[in-house]
Design a protein around this nucleic acid. Structure first.
Lengths: 228, 228
DNA sequence: TGTACATCAGTGAACGCGCGTTCACTGATGTAC
DNA sequence: TGTACATCAGTGAACGCGCGTTCACTGATGTAC
């Protein structure tokens, strides 16, 4: 929640204001978001944020290297902003998938499908959360960890709701959510390097694994109830 | 110039041993293993193999940068050798832990304990497999993937043996082994960045998660039997 | 309205650094005769 | 036995490169009066 004046929204007067009318010999003004976009363009299956250089990003954004400092203190600051954005975007997508879930299409299965759809598509946000969690600075890893925690929390709430609706028990819902999230991300990371036709197999495996966890927690909830 | 104390001068016994010609017929100043050791020394919580430079490793080993090429084509080749070694060492440790397992201390629990012991200790091999799987070259990632597959295979065999001994069913043992392995490594990776006192909590969580998976697969095996 | 000024995102040039890699070379050791 | 030669892990020096960072500067824009 930085209070940097992010985009210049001062020209939100409704009409297409030509504020850069007199910039013929000059570069258009660049925003933080433009730089984040540039970094995003450079990220791919074989490039992680941590391997990007400041100069590369500046080049991609079309500004001089030193201009980078007008927007970010260093690449780490940009990386964290990027992770935040990636997490927010992904949660939105998975959240929508959950809301489309029905008694026929379980929450878990819908989420896995949405997840793998993102993986198979051109979506780069997923790559970020998948890869960057294990390398980089501490602040960096904490940012990824925080996003994962958001996922877990949202899944936890959904699992509890689901257990009440279906009248099935659930043992340690927080741990179930964590196990599912971590497992999906770990499997997703390996799936990323596989050709598309093998990913379907991974998705199948993931679903079975999650089913084991769900059956496990339900069974344990029952014996818990019995024991009490 | 520094003089280095060189170990393993095995042919200094005066006896001529012709077959040694192929390996090191002459006094070996530095070996491949020495370079791998040097790289290992440089790896830590905040340094992954992929961030090591050729010059750093040469410096640590006490040789000139260009001498590196006498032993490895590039850093990637060294990294793969290091991953192989790490995997072999870890499997040995976990394997020994499994053999110490008894009816009172389950295979899963013993393995998790051995795993976390390595994590808490100064053991750097674990760091390698934990961190390097998501970055680096393809050959690099494949090497880590191969080690993980070894773990899964060994665990699978143990799980089946255990299921027969205890006369409990097991559904899709290969997937169970995979889920457990991936989950443990994923959780371990996040535990690495935590202070020691919080790691005990992670270990507790890991054990509960694995219990859910095991209960799940057993329950599913039962309903499978019933269904058939 | 015009003028003066402050602001600040942009700039080119330069720096020192560590990097991977190349080259021709050295000298200890093993082999052939 | 000695001599000549081959082998090869080591070496110092040098290269060109991309990097992060600094500096003084530019000029468009908004504001005060």
């Amino acid at each position: 929640m930085q209070d940097h004046a992010k985009p210049l929204d001062s020209e939100s007067n409704g009409e297409q204001n030509p504020p850069q009318r007199a910039h013929q010999g000059r570069k258009a003004v660049i925003t933080r978001d433009d730089l984040i976009d540039a970094a995003l363009k450079l990220i791919g299956p074989h490039r992680s944020i941590s391997t990007l250089s400041l100069r590369e990003v500046a080049r991609e954004a079309g500004i001089a290297p030193n201009s980078f400092y007008r927007h970010f203190r260093d690449m780490d600051e940009l990386a964290i902003a990027l992770i935040d954005r990636a997490g927010r975007s992904l949660r939105k997508i998975i959240g929508e998938a959950r809301n489309r879930a029905s008694p026929e299409r379980s929450v878990v299965r819908s989420s896995v499908e949405a997840f793998m759809e993102q993986l198979n598509g051109d979506e780069r946000y997923l790559h970020i959360l998948l890869r960057e969690g294990t390398v980089g600075s501490d602040a960096f890893k904490q940012a990824v960890e925080r996003e994962l925690n958001f996922f877990e929390e949202e899944l936890r709430v959904d699992l509890i709701r689901l257990a009440e609706t279906n009248n099935t028990g659930i043992y340690e819902p927080a741990l179930v959510a964590k196990a599912i999230t971590r497992l999906v991300f770990a499997m997703g990371a390996t799936a990323m390097d596989l050709p598309l036709e093998k990913r379907a197999e991974i998705q199948e495996q993931m679903t079975t694994m999650l089913r084991m966890i769900v059956v496990g927690t339900q069974t344990m909830a029952q014996s818990d109830t019995i024991r009490l």
